[in-house]
Structures are given as C-alpha cells and as structure tokens.
Design a binder for these strands. Structure first.
Lengths: 350, 350
DNA sequence: CTGAAAGCGCTTACAG
DNA sequence: CTGAAAGCGCTTACAG
C-alpha cells in the first residue's frame, strides 16, 4: 500500500480511500490510483490489516461437536447448514467450520482452530453439556448463539421444545393402542457406548436434545399409566447409517414389538429398512415414528415430528448477527408439528 | 496483553512467550503470568494480531460456484467436503466456505467475502470457465488449488479424466447393443436454461466437467460409427432433485429409449425413479448408467463410473497445504473405474 | 532468562 | 479534497 502511495505521489490514506471510500476522493484521482495499483499488482487492502484495525472479520464460526466429515453426512445438520448459509450469504458473511471434538487438545489455551479461526462470533451447534469450547469462547467474550444445546448460562439460544414434541410422538403411538414399543436414540454420551440404555444413562445424557426427547417419551408413557422403566431403549452410539441399522436390528431382536419410537428420522428410516429386510410390513406389522421431518421422510411416508431445520439455521444466524451488532440476547423457540403419514397404524392392523 | 504485562511487572514479550513459547520462560514465571492473565480475563493471544504478524491464518477457503445451501445438498459435493475436512482436521486447519456466484458484485475489488474471509489459501471447486473469483485470488498471489475446474493457467490441480471415464460409460452401453440412448446433464452454463441441448451449447459449456463428459460420450458414439448429433441431450439446468426429475421426464418423453446415459448419479437416480413411475422396469425396459458412484448408488444397484470423491478432497487439501508450504504445483489425476451393477443390460432384455 | 523496540497492513480522526 | 500520524494486537530478532 505504501509503495502504491509512493508511486502515485499521494498519501497512504488516499490508497485506502480509493478502495474503500470512493466518495472521499475525486473520480479522476481515484481512477489514477486504481490504475497504478493495478500496474503494481496491488489488488486492494489485505483483509488481516483491515480486520485488526476495524475489529470486524466478516466470518461466522460454526462449532460442531463431531468431526466435520460427519457434519456433511447427517441430513439434519445439512438442513441446518442450509439455513445458516442462506443468511450468511445475504449478509456477505463467510462461514467457518470449527470441529470441536470433546476431548480435543486443541481447545487448550492458545493453540487451535477455535482461536485461530478468525470469526466475529460463534454458532454452537448441539454441543454436549459441559463442552469446554463454549467456555473458551465465552472467556474471550466472543458473541455466541447456542443451537439445540444446553443453556445454563442464559446465552442467546435457538431450538425447539424437544420434550413436548417427543411427548406428542409417543402419545400418538400410545393413542393408537401400542403397548409393545421400542425406542431408538442416536447418542446420549459421546463415549463410544451403544446398545441397551439403562435409566441412569438416560438421565445422565450429555446431549440435551436426546435427553429431552427421552424425557418426553417417558412423560407420555407415564401419562398413559405405563411403566417407562420397562421400555427397551437402544442407543446407536453414533449417527451413521451403519450404527442406525445395527441399533434397529438390536431393537427388533429384543422381542415382538408393535411399534418403534425413533429419536430421529435417520433412526426411523433405518428401522423401516431393517423391518423390511425381516419381512415385517410397515405399518401393518410394525408402526414407526421418527423425529425431524427430514427431506427424505415424506418420500418414505414416515410419520414424524416436524421441526423447521432450515429455519432454525436462519434464525440462529440472524440472531448471532444481531448480537454481534449489539442486540440483546434472546431465546427463540421454534414450533414443531406432529405429521401423521403412513408408517403408523393401530397394532394388529395386519 | 499490555495490561497483563503491566500487572505482572514484566514485558509484553514475556506474556507472548508464556502463551506461545513456554520454553522461553522459567516454569514458575510462566505459571505466575498465566495466573494473572486468567484473573484479568485475558484468554491468550488474539488471533488477528498473530496473523498479521506471522502471516499465517490457520484456515483454508473453499470457493464454490453456487450458493452454499446447494453445496450442502449435493451428495458429490458432500463427499468431497468430507475428504477436505479430514485433512483439515488433522492439520488443525479451519475450513471457510466462500460462495462465489458467477455474477456476484462481491468479487469486485475490495468488498466481499473472498477478501474478507481470512484464509491461507483457496480450494476452487468446479468453478466454471472464466470465473472472476480465481482471477481475483491469483492477483493477490494467494495459493490456490483447482478441483475439477478448467486449468488454462497451469495451477495446481486435482481431478479425474472425465472424458475417458465418460467414454467408457457410453461404450459399455453401446457394447450391450443399445442404439436408442438419451443423455442427461446437470448444467452446462449457469444461465438458467434447461431442456434439449444443441451441439453448439455442448461445446460452449463453461462447466469443464460436463463438457468433458459429453465429449467422452460423443467419442464413444463416433467410435461405434453412430451419429452423436442425433442423440438427445437434456440439460437439467441445476442440481436439485426437482430439476433432475424434470429433465429425466423430458428425456423419456422424447421417444422410445432403451438406455439413459446420465452425467451424474443424481441424474441417474432421478431417471430410475422417473422410469419406475412410468411403469418401466430397469434394466429390462430401460438401462441406466450414472457417474460418480455416490454412496446411494450401490444401494440402488446402479451401474456407474466410480471416482474417488473423498480422496479427491483429501488430495486437493493436502496439495494446497503443500503449496502453501512452498511445494511445487502439481497436477493430480485420480483413477476412475466402471462399476457394472444391475441397472444396465442388453436392450430388449424384457 | 528477560526486556525494549520495530513492524506486520490497514483505517480514521484530525488538521490543513 | 488530501496528508501525517496513531494505533489495532501481536511476535521476534536483538541486546542485555
């Protein structure tokens, strides 16, 4: 920049103005400067200098618990990302993806992505309870919006009433007359465990979403006078299709069931596939209900709870932008809706 | 930082060392400084300052043609992202997504994501020919690796032999005896057009991948002594399922076909669905061949050309990291393979 | 083992 | 309409 200023015989400020404040310079002067800059191979202000000076980066960071590769695999995350990206694009903000594995060394003091990823604020997506990343970010007093995660600190938050929505799903099954119901959840604690879940583990779940949904299921059972403790809950231990299919298989092994209550659509779809491969018809032999209403759910005629995933991404991003601009923190609760399609029916229907 | 130095009664350098160069300080001194920093709410060096000083950001930028929302929708892009994310994670590098719409005002001189997104280098994914974003980046002398895109400038590049791979797909169909073949492509020029594609538009395609694949198809037809000019090519005009289904529908309308040559698996899968809804059996009544071998292709028993998408992301990211570190530019050509499954058979099979 | 000083590239309030 | 100067937060070569 100084070289350009020298070559043009003007001050450094003039160069800055030529690029960033056209109105501060006469048109011919500006043209001349731009021309000279071009000849010298100067393509405009370097963003790091500008950032240091203005304090504005122009990028938002998305913290995801699991590895990035997973984030691109999960349809629910993909839908959320779409919403985030929409708002980001409109506001000309870049999106930086920050993987925040729970046990990461990267979150320590000074090294690591979290501190190097230069962003104006963070979106913390579904981080498990007590995740150090959020703490680190708060310590730096960086703006953060929590999506779906636990929020003991009263941070800006966007999510849904997972408990109540899940309750309605279970109540739907119970109202149809199902009494032999099995439950599928993806991951309660990121500790690599999978298989049947004891009540203690249900309550100790560090994933707020799954914990709340389980609590909702339990509430529906209790309201119907049924012993929730006797219901089999199988944890997939992960989000991938393979884990989902294994969990569905394990659940169907446990005995004759008339219905599967799946904590996510991914699990519900896996349950349908597993049922199909065992010769069980849905819903004649087995009812299946999911959660999320992913794009694929309608095609599969899946009864599920709809939550506005894309909208969740949009609202969270807008809220973060607002908070960065100085707005008050807010808690945004999005609506959900039970969508009854063709995978649930009365038991013994077949 | 200065405040901490003052409070601790040491120089600013000591604070820097305490966080970034532990070996430069005695352990007790370091402890004391860290302690004081903590009390003062100083959480370690701010990354922008460090970046300005060291010139290293710790983030890579991925330029995608279309809107970010789309990027999260397309399975092929998702696979690529997975590979990129894997390498990025290992190298503790954050990934910044930079949407680069072709007609964007944002790419002009000084404003915009491209310049504000603070990154050490760029991955340019499938940008159409003559995209201004690449030019802008090169002007700034920022390291860039081109994935799948055109590469007149001899930049570091990662991709596959699209033409030869596509030729093998067409040759497979032709060898089976198909003579009534229709072709599906996603988008040749980002101009909103869809429908039948004239030869001129085929050659003028700005998307290198589709242009090469079409050239490969044409080569196979010519090698078999068949007039490529008479083959119907339908352009979806986009990548979404709706566009794909519409294109497949339009193709099947054009007359009795024995086979569909789809430029991507997404299109092939759409063709299969469309065929199914019209009562056509695959492969008895209609053969379908795709390209990519997406995760969903195996489940659908789709015959297709496999390309290592995840590996492509990995290699490109590693190459970019190497180039940033000063390595020589390189062109990496990944292998492809025709995977014959159950959607192709001899015509008249049914 | 520690400190003083320069400088990374920019923007902006202020003076002319 | 233009210019001189300060300072954003850091790191590092150098001197002590």
């Amino acid at each position: 920049m100084r070289d350009v200023a020298r070559a043009a015989g003007v001050s450094q400020a003039a160069i800055s103005y030529a690029f960033s404040r056209p109105e501060k310079l006469s048109a011919p002067q500006r043209e001349r400067i731009l021309q000279i800059a071009d000849e010298l191979g100067y393509a405009g202000p370097h963003s790091v200098g500008r950032t240091l000076r203005t304090g504005q980066v122009g990028a938002l960071g998305l913290m995801v618990t699991d590895s990035l590769p997973y984030a691109f695999d999960d349809p629910a995350t993909a839908a959320l990302l779409r919403g985030i990206a929409e708002v980001g694009e409109v506001s000309e903000t870049a999106l930086t993806l920050l993987p925040c594995p729970l046990e990461s060394e990267r979150l320590t003091r000074n090294s690591g992505v979290l501190l190097r990823g230069l962003v104006d604020g963070f979106l913390a997506y579904a981080l498990p309870e007590g995740h150090p990343a959020v703490e680190t970010v708060l310590r730096r007093r960086l703006p953060v919006v929590v999506i779906d995660g636990p929020n003991p600190g009263g941070l800006p938050w966007v999510g849904i009433e997972d408990r109540e929505a899940a309750r309605s799903a279970a109540a739907h099954l119970l109202a149809l007359g199902h009494r032999s119901v099995g439950v599928l959840v993806d991951r309660l604690v990121p500790d690599g465990c999978s298989g049947p879940v004891a009540p203690a583990r249900q309550r100790a779940a560090r994933d707020r979403v799954m914990r709340e949904r389980l609590a909702g299921y339990a509430a529906a059972f209790r309201a119907a006078g049924l012993p929730w403790e006797e219901v089999t809950v199988i944890e997939a231990g992960g989000f991938h299709e393979a884990a989902s299919l294994a969990a569905a298989g394990a659940l169907l092994e446990t005995g004759p069931l008339t219905a599967v209550l799946a904590g996510t659509d991914v699990l519900a779809l896996a349950a349908m596939r597993t049922a199909g491969s065992r010769g069980l018809r849905v819903p004649e032999d087995l009812s299946v209900i999911g959660f999320d209403d992913l794009p694929g759910a309608a095609g599969a005629q899946l009864t599920t709870v709809r939550q506005p995933l894309v909208e969740k991404g949009r609202r969270a991003t807008q809220l973060l932008l607002d908070v960065i601009a100085g707005a008050e923190p807010e808690e945004i609760l999005l609506p959900t809706e039970l969508v009854v399609r063709a995978t649930t029916a009365r038991p013994g229907h077949g």
